[in-house]
Design a protein around this nucleic acid. Structure first.
Length: 287
DNA sequence: AGCTACTCCTGGTAGC
DNA sequence: TGCTACCAGGAGTAGC
């Protein structure tokens, strides 16, 4: 599902097609996708504006708009489960699940397609307010081992739930949390404030490594939904160590991968590589 | 603060 | 073959 690597891929690929383009007529077939703003207000806010910046923040694609050299707010696109962004020639066949279409001044259209209607295509005058609740970006300099240590110590929940919390750290979802925890040798039920320094350093390293490798492969596509804006599937699903591998042998130790449910989320762990208790304590109390 | 449960939504698939 | 039931899942909300 679209998480940081998929959203990063989408933002990179639509960026050259959108930068500098002037937005024209808007068609909205599914009003709820706008998140409460009326179609009229939405159209008025963006028509005639130009795309100044295309970037990613957490799982949002952010398109900053300007009009006459001044900020005209921003479009925030959240793909949720099945959302897709395309730039296609106007007049080409419209996907039946197209929710929002915006004409561009070069004869193309920006189209937001979303089968399950969970996705959002929002306009906000103050993007920094709308995005302000998000935690730090895991691939930016503010995400240091020291920050992570302090942040984990200040919370008491389960590691998995915390890493899924976008206000704690922005961009991770179910897949990459499971993968990063496995690579760190940490059980998802471990308490966030009970990690050792070396465990925290490992977690920091593996979160970044997992995301970087997934971005290099343009994200993960294992069902009919996620595709790059150019229609290609990502290929990181071939690198999964635990996600979706229930019952299959761990690639490190051969133990069958277990499926748990934590916080209503399917969770995949290797029971041997990810012990529920800290390794050091375990050795002391065993034998 | 943080837990569970529920909701949204629909295509895909497992089981009969 | 055709039906039903359930699963996937990010985020928001309610209630404890």
């Amino acid at each position: 599902m679209p998480e940081l690597p998929e959203v990063e891929t989408v933002a990179r690929l639509v960026r050259p097609r959108l930068l500098g383009r002037k937005l024209g007529g808007v068609t909205v077939t599914t009003p709820r996708t706008l998140g409460g703003l009326s179609r009229v207000a939405f159209g008025r806010a963006i028509t005639g504006a130009r795309v100044g910046v295309v970037r990613r923040r957490g799982k949002f694609v952010v398109m900053e708009l300007e009009r006459g050299g001044r900020s005209a707010g921003a479009l925030l696109v959240h793909l949720r489960m099945t959302g897709r962004l395309h730039v296609e020639a106007a007049g080409t066949e419209l996907d039946p699940y197209a929710r929002v279409c915006i004409a561009l001044d070069d004869g193309n259209e920006l189209r937001f397609v979303d089968v399950r209607r969970f996705g959002r295509f929002l306009w906000t005058a103050r993007p920094e307010l709308a995005l302000g609740a998000l935690g730090p970006e895991p691939l930016e300099p503010a995400f240091t081992v020291e920050w992570l240590a302090g942040a984990l110590a200040g919370r008491r929940g389960r590691l998995k739930s915390l890493l899924l919390d976008q206000t704690f750290l922005a961009g991770l979802g179910n897949i990459y949390v499971d993968e990063a925890l496995f690579r760190s040798g940490l059980h998802p039920l471990r308490a966030s404030d009970r990690l050792g320094d070396r465990e925290i350093a490992r977690l920091h390293t593996e979160i970044q490594a997992t995301l970087i490798e997934a971005i290099e492969r343009e994200g993960s596509s294992f069902d009919a939904f996620y595709r790059t804006p150019e229609g290609r599937p990502g290929s990181y699903q071939h690198q999964f160590r635990v996600y979706g591998r229930t019952g299959k042998p761990c690639k490190v130790c051969g133990s069958p991968i277990q499926r748990l449910v934590i916080g209503q989320r399917a969770t995949h762990v290797c029971p041997r590589c990810q012990p529920r208790v800290k390794k050091r304590l375990r050795q002391r109390t065993s034998g």
